[in-house]
């Protein structure tokens, strides 16, 4: 056998691949979001579907403009912008004007992702960044909640408001969310209602049970790090449980705190963002527990009824410091902690 017959393939690491590519992961997550959007449509009607469509379109357009795809790549991109769009829509109230939602989606990708250099580089979760931007820019519109729809095709009052014009159509039917009812009148909703999802709130703040199932599925598939939702939910349960134990008349019971609002959505889909969460398991635990503590602090003592978004954004900001304090082991080197 001569040397020339030997076939030598030169390639760099990694040599073993899991078969999971980025678009594959992203589209699989998108598929798990379909039942969530379906649930929102069931509770809030056609507004929920249109809102999702508007947000996804805005994110996709921003992605095309700021991060143009390589020639020959899929027109839809790698799917991460679609996830951002759906997640942003899930944090918006059903009666939110579509033009504001569009702006939010655009900002989410432009400032949340493109500015940092694209997928895999963002320090903050893009969808939450878009939501925080909308909260700062339109604090009134984003806290106007509509009660679940009476008919499927009934559009919410201010959905079609025009930009920069004072919309004369004010949504007459508003229903307080479970969290704002708790905050301002000290009425805790039944946890069974929260589990099934027949409550007012943002599009993705309905059924806690659905997110539980999806979270289990995603964790089983290895698409999210189970430590994040487990750490977050356990911390919120423990912290609010202690407060409830001290003074049940003043504080909400822990099962309410876990199921109400965006905690389940945040724990399963937002905090688990692969890019903006810490690298090591130890870091992940710190991150998750930090989010849980901040959520309870903002909900119980803060001026706003809901704090999941701010809690995750704040811990996103801390993540670089966590990664610095707990560096990953460099392959072939000794563990940095030993």
């Amino acid at each position: 056998m001569t040397l020339s017959m030997m076939k030598t393939i030169i390639s760099s690491s990694p040599f073993l691949r899991s078969g999971l590519s980025t678009p594959r992961i992203m589209w699989e997550v998108v598929i798990t979001l379909v039942p969530v959007v379906g649930m929102a449509a069931w509770v809030f009607g056609i507004s929920a579907l249109l809102m999702t469509l508007v947000c996804v379109l805005a994110c996709w357009m921003a992605e095309r403009i700021f991060l143009p795809p390589a020639p020959g790549a899929s027109v839809l991109g790698d799917g991460s912008a679609v996830i951002t769009g759906i997640l942003l829509a899930l944090c918006l109230p059903p009666g939110f004007p579509f033009w504001m939602a569009f702006l939010g989606g655009f900002v989410a990708i432009a400032l949340g992702k493109a500015m940092w250099g694209g997928l895999g580089h963002n320090v903050f979760n893009p969808a939450l960044l878009g939501r925080a931007f909308l909260q700062a820019a339109f604090p009134g519109a984003i806290t106007t909640w509509s009660a679940p729809a009476t008919s499927f095709f009934a559009l919410r009052g201010s959905n079609l408001a025009l930009p920069f014009l004072k919309g004369e159509s004010v949504d007459a039917m508003t229903g307080a969310t479970p969290l704002s009812a708790m905050k301002f009148t000290h009425q805790a909703a039944d946890w069974q209602d929260l589990l099934i999802g027949q409550v007012s709130g943002s599009l993705g703040e309905t059924s806690g049970g659905l997110f539980l199932l999806l979270g289990l599925y995603l964790a089983w598939r290895g698409l999210i790090n189970w430590r994040i939702p487990v750490g977050m939910i356990a911390t919120v349960g423990l912290f609010s449980g202690i407060l409830y134990w001290i003074d049940p008349a003043h504080y909400a019971p822990p099962q309410f705190m876990i199921l109400a609002g965006g905690l389940m959505l945040g724990a399963v889909y937002m905090a688990t963002d692969l890019v903006s969460s810490p690298l090591t398991h130890k870091g992940i635990w710190i991150y998750a527990v930090g989010i849980g503590i901040l959520v309870v602090m903002i909900r119980v003592w803060g001026g706003l009824p809901e704090g999941v978004m701010y809690a995750i954004l704040l811990m996103n900001a801390v993540t670089p410091l966590i990664n610095r304090a707990l560096p990953t082991r460099v392959y072939g080197h000794a563990s940095p902690t030993s």
Partner: peptide
């Protein structure tokens, strides 16, 4: 966005995140 622009945008984002603490303990 490299340089000052990035710093200013990050400062703005941090400031938005700190809005979560607004009104805390006032009630």
């Amino acid at each position: 966005v490299k340089g000052t622009a990035l710093s200013l945008i990050v400062a703005g984002i941090l400031s938005m995140a700190f809005m979560g603490f607004a009104g805390m303990f006032s009630a």
